[in-house]
């Protein structure tokens, strides 16, 4: 298992734990293996990011509402699974209970607070949802204490499988990848082949038009919002067994989700998907390979120092570069 406490808060928050595995002797093979593992980790991380970013980008695209509190919904998902799995003793049951609870919680927040912010300016939205973060980050401490909780990996998904010569990979992480791809596919079908999805797409392009067509825009907002909250909660629930569940765990991942939707183009599910995978890969692979790459130009100690300093900045530099050439992201929706 991964020792969560030994690594920095960011890694804990994002799931970038360098995975320990038996490495083959040959150095070249080792690099290749390491690369494959990092690529898988990156894919897994990217998919989690996508689950969070999807809700965020839809909520923004359809409602023009910037919701900083989206990250705490991820945290709440993780806490719910922790609480329910302690109660029922089963991860499966916990997940089944956590999803509707996360949905209900999202709808509750919408009704209590967010609803009053839709026609406010972005500054008001930023501040009020920041207030929600402050409250909930302390709120979970109030209820569950400040110490991180841990959730056991479900029995049938524990252990590792050999996916290539000398390459062991944890089953649970593969399960996350599968679940992430499944939900992404589901989302694609929902958005592109259903009536609700059509309204959502139309809403992202022109909300006034949609309401002029006689659609109950408030209800559409609620559905989108609740759905986004549930997706974020699902992401939190899925990573609960491999990360430590703790207050503030949604904060850093929220920023990454922002980076994702900004790169992808606000309101675009397709953009969010591609950008999430890109960010996941760039970040994960960059962290382990930046020092190696720099060794080509610098002496080893300087390379490893610069590399370690540079790696976490990579995605932001990447974002800056994208925006420099395309100020409204790769797949701009709003016109």
């Amino acid at each position: 298992m991964i020792l969560a406490n030994a690594i920095g808060p960011f890694r804990r928050a994002t799931g970038l734990t360098p995975h320990r595995c038996a490495l083959a002797a040959s150095k070249a093979l080792m690099t290749a293996t390491l690369f494959l593992i990092q690529a898988l980790n990156g894919l897994q991380f990217g998919l989690i990011l996508f689950l969070i970013a999807a809700g965020l980008t839809l909520v923004f695209g359809v409602m023009d509402f910037i919701n900083l509190a989206h990250g705490v919904q991820y945290m709440v998902g993780a806490y719910l699974v922790a609480a329910f799995s302690a109660w029922t003793g089963s991860f499966g049951w916990a997940l089944l209970l956590a999803l509707p609870t996360a949905l209900a919680f999202g709808l509750l927040l919408e009704a209590l607070i967010f609803r009053h912010l839709y026609d406010r300016d972005h500054l008001d939205q930023v501040l009020a949802t920041f207030g929600v973060i402050l409250f909930l980050n302390q709120g979970v401490k109030f209820v569950w204490g400040a110490a991180p909780l841990s959730v056991p990996v479900p029995e049938i998904l524990s252990g590792s499988v050999q996916i290539a010569d000398g390459l062991l990979y944890p089953v649970y992480r593969l399960a996350i990848i599968a679940a992430g791809l499944f939900v992404a596919g589901l989302l694609y079908v929902l958005v592109s082949h259903t009536r609700i999805g059509m309204l959502v797409r139309a809403g992202a392009t022109n909300a006034e038009m949609v309401s002029a067509l006689g659609v109950n825009i408030r209800r559409l907002f609620m559905i989108v919002f609740g759905f986004g909250a549930m997706l974020a909660g699902f992401a939190g629930a899925m990573v609960a067994p491999i990360l430590s569940v703790q207050p503030g765990m949604g904060d850093n991942i929220l920023i990454l989700a922002f980076v994702v939707i900004v790169i992808g183009g606000i309101g675009s599910i397709r953009g969010a998907f591609l950008a999430a995978l890109l960010i996941g890969l760039v970040d994960t692979v960059g962290r382990s390979f930046a020092p190696n790459l720099l060794r080509v130009f610098l002496d080893p100690s300087a390379a490893s120092q610069t590399g370690r300093a540079l790696a976490p900045m990579l995605i932001y530099i990447f974002m800056a570069a994208v925006l420099f050439f395309r100020p409204s992201g790769l797949f701009p929706v709003k016109r």
């Binding site: 923004f60 023009d64 910037i66 972005h122 930023v126 920023i255 922002f258 980076v259 939707i261 900004v262 606000i266 932001y316 974002m319 800056a320 925006l323 100020p327 409204s328 992201g329």
Partner: peptide, 9 residues
């Protein structure tokens, strides 16, 4: 909102 997020990032 892009400006908000970019400065944040």
């Amino acid at each position: 909102v892009y400006f908000i997020m970019i400065t944040l990032a």
